[in-house]
Structure formats: C-alpha cells, structure tokens
Design a protein around this nucleic acid. Structure first.
Ligand SMILES: Nc1ncnc2c1ncn2[C@@H]1O[C@H](COP(=O)(O)O)[C@@H](O)[C@H]1O
Ligand SMILES: Nc1ncnc2c1ncn2[C@@H]1O[C@H](COP(=O)(O)O)[C@@H](O)[C@H]1O
Ligand SMILES: [Zn+2]
Ligand SMILES: [Zn+2]
Lengths: 192, 192
DNA sequence: GAATCATAAC
DNA sequence: GAATCATAAC
C-alpha cells in the first residue's frame, strides 16, 4: 500500500496503537504527526464515503458523522482535563473541525484539532497554514460549492501567499520559528 | 555586519543576553541555536586568533584558552546540578569540546556541548553529524596536521556519507526523527 | 549559520 | 503525507 493510502489500513483493520474508537461506520485515531496538543482524525469506513473529495460531502452524508465529531471533541476535553492539570485550559471553542482543501492522503478524513498549534511535528509553514486560512475548510462550510481551485492554484493562493498569523491574536510573523515561539507563549499564558 | 560575522558582535561588545562570562581574552556565550541541552561557545577576542582557521591552532595558542574550557565545563556541571534535579545526570565526560572541520561563522569559536543532543534546534542530519563524526574535531586533536579536505570534500565525506549513529550506543538510524526519539530515550534513561 | 522553497524517492 | 537534499536570499 503506497503512502497515499496509509489511512486505509485503519479502515480495514481498526485495531491499532493509534485507534481511540471504532464502530461499523467510523474509526477515530490520533494523528501520527499531530500539529497541535490534540489532533485526531475521523475516518469514515463506508467505501462510498472514503473515496469522496471531502469538499463535496452532502448535508445528508455529514449528518451521519456528527456524533463522531462530538465523541472526538469530548475525548479531547476529557483527556486534557485529566492530564494532571497540564492542559486544563482547553475549551470546546478551542477545537477545530474540518478538512484540507486539497488532502494529500486519499481516504476521506476529518481533522479534529486544538487551536494551540504547539507541536514538535509542526515543522514547515505549510503545516501551519493548512489549518489557518482558506486551505482549512471548516466542517460547517461543507459542502463547499464549486468551482474549485486546482491543486497548483490552491497551493499558491491558499498556502504560499497566505501570511503567518497567530491563531489567537492575528499578529503576523515573519517566519515559522518566531510564530512557534509566540504560540508557545500563548499556550503558557492560557495555562495560568 | 553579514551573517558570517555575527559572532564578531560578542567580541566587540561582550555584554549581551547570551553572555555568560568575559574578560580581555575571551567571551563565553550560550549558542543561540543549541544542538544539545547545554551548548556554549568560547570566543577568543585576540584579533590574531579570531581570524584563524581553528584547525591550525598551535599548542601555544591553545594553552591560553584551557582555563576558559574549564570554566565552561564547570558552568555546565554546576548549572545542570542546580536545575531542579532535571539535568543532574550530566558528568564531565558527557561534555565535548572542539571545532567544526569547516566552520560557517568566521570568528574562531570553540564548541562546548553536552553529548545528549536533545534539542528542538537540531533539525537536520547535518546538525547532528557536525558534532558526531570526523566533522567534529576534538580540542585534543588540535592542531590538526594538513593536508585538509576542501569544503566540498568535507561536506561529502565528513557529513553526507556519514551514518546517523547514536552518540551513546552507536546504533545506526535510518533517519533523523528516529534518532531523535532514541536520543530522548537515552536522556530519560540516564535521568533515572 | 538559519529559514524557505522545490524536488526525488518512499 | 514525511524526510532528505540542493538552492536563494539574508
Ligand atoms: N500513518 C499515519 N497515521 C496517522 N496519521 C497520519 C499518518 N500519516 C500521515 N498522517 C496524518 O494524516 C493527515 C493527512 O493530511 P491531509 O491529507 O493534508 O488532510 C496529516 O495530518 C498527517 O499528519
Ligand atoms: N547569533 C548567534 N549567536 C550565538 N550563536 C550563534 C549565532 N548564530 C549562529 N550561532 C551558532 O554558532 C555556531 C556556528 O557553527 P560553526 O560555524 O559550524 O562552528 C552554531 O552552533 C550556531 O548555532
Ligand atoms: Zn498571538
Ligand atoms: Zn543509543
């Protein structure tokens, strides 16, 4: 199985180190390269759904997965609460749910991620911009009506040309290391 | 002043956020991008010395800086001891002293670094290999007799072709993330 | 030296 | 998608 289909493994055989929950419709896993303190993926198992462009999810299709989103959010809230008081500042509104305008991995997946973006795995500007700006399509915006940018166009307009702004205060940063330092400070501030 | 001479600032005006010690002969600073838990730089202020290729430091020249090496090592041992018991596993033999075969920054500087190599700033294979393998020339090997590899040759032979082996157990790793994970484990193990 | 971007090969 | 390497521009 090529890297593009690496998420298929979870759908076919849901038992894994990363698996937090599964039933006949869904598998919920921890993202292996979390771009924030909490970063889960919801993977619909239905073949009709897993092969879809997530931008085109219908309201009917979406309705089937709402409860898994609730589960994932609740998992984050509860887990952070019980994490020795370290993460007890996470609120429901700190959690983002959505998809990438152009996913890299083939099987449809829904990101559920906290808005701290404090993570060692966040290494490149694209990692941040993919969750902050138009490349991140909020669950509530789906289905996103056509026309769609091509992959090249989206890369340019929705990633490369986007500024690096703090997810909390909108302050623009010249580069990723300074933004990351600031995000760490935002996180530490919230803790107190 | 171009990036190549950024260390000159410390020599000209030793008072800075990073400065730990200075006198007429030397400035000792914290490396701004530490590649391990403790990473200091010793900067000779003597113009004749600062412009030298460090590989050619004579025994006579070296003798002038021995005491600053002692100071730097002692600083690391004492600081780690007083760091709330977090780093109290650092021993004198965990500290490496030396220079890079081909320095990037112009003013002669001596690295004093712990062998944990646990650091967010260690981002590329070269960062690790520059301290582990022939690219790192130990203080005790100086002066290094000619002939010298060219910069290109050193980059190939002393960096690119070198394996990524653990500084503690010599185990070879396929890539930097797996090595970093292992180094973190080595560090945590030593702590206990 | 650091940071960004493009490009293979997986 | 991740990881490595080469390449500008600072
Ligand atoms: N083997 C894996 N297991 C779990 N998550 C993964 C794996 N490989 C990549 N990912 C994550 O999958 C997501 C795919 O992103 P995207 O296709 O852009 O929506 C990213 O957040 C990756 O970190
Ligand atoms: N502005 C700076 N202040 C302090 N250290 C620095 C600065 N810029 C780079 N460095 C460090 O200087 C060292 C130069 O490495 P090298 O020239 O390869 O011996 C590296 O360890 C860098 O992290
Ligand atoms: Zn902010
Ligand atoms: Zn080891």
């Amino acid at each position: 199985m090529s890297w593009k289909y690496v998420l298929k493994g979870y759908i076919v055989n849901p038992t894994s180190e990363n698996t937090l929950f599964y039933d006949d419709s869904c598998v919920i896993i921890k993202d292996s390269f979390p771009k924030a303190k909490y970063h889960l993926l919801i993977l619909p198992r239905d073949h009709k759904i897993t092969i879809k462009d997530p931008k085109t999810l219908t309201f009917k299709e979406k309705s089937r997965y709402e409860k898994y989103i609730v589960w994932a959010k609740n998992y984050i809230l509860e887990t952070s609460k019980s994490n020795g008081g370290f993460d007890n500042n996470i609120k429901i509104n700190d959690i983002r749910v959505g998809i990438h305008y152009v996913p890299s991995l083939a099987n449809l997946h829904i990101h559920v991620i906290t808005n701290d973006f404090v993570s060692d795995k966040l290494k490149y500007p694209k990692h941040y911009k993919a969750f902050n700006g138009p490349f991140f399509v909020d669950w509530d915006q789906l289905p996103l009506p056509p026309p769609y940018l091509t992959s090249k166009e989206a890369e340019m307009k929705y990633i490369k040309l986007q500024p690096l702004k703090c997810s909390h205060c909108d302050y623009p940063f010249k580069n990723l290391p300074t933004l990351k330092k600031h995000l760490k400070q935002e996180w530490e501030t919230k803790k107190n």
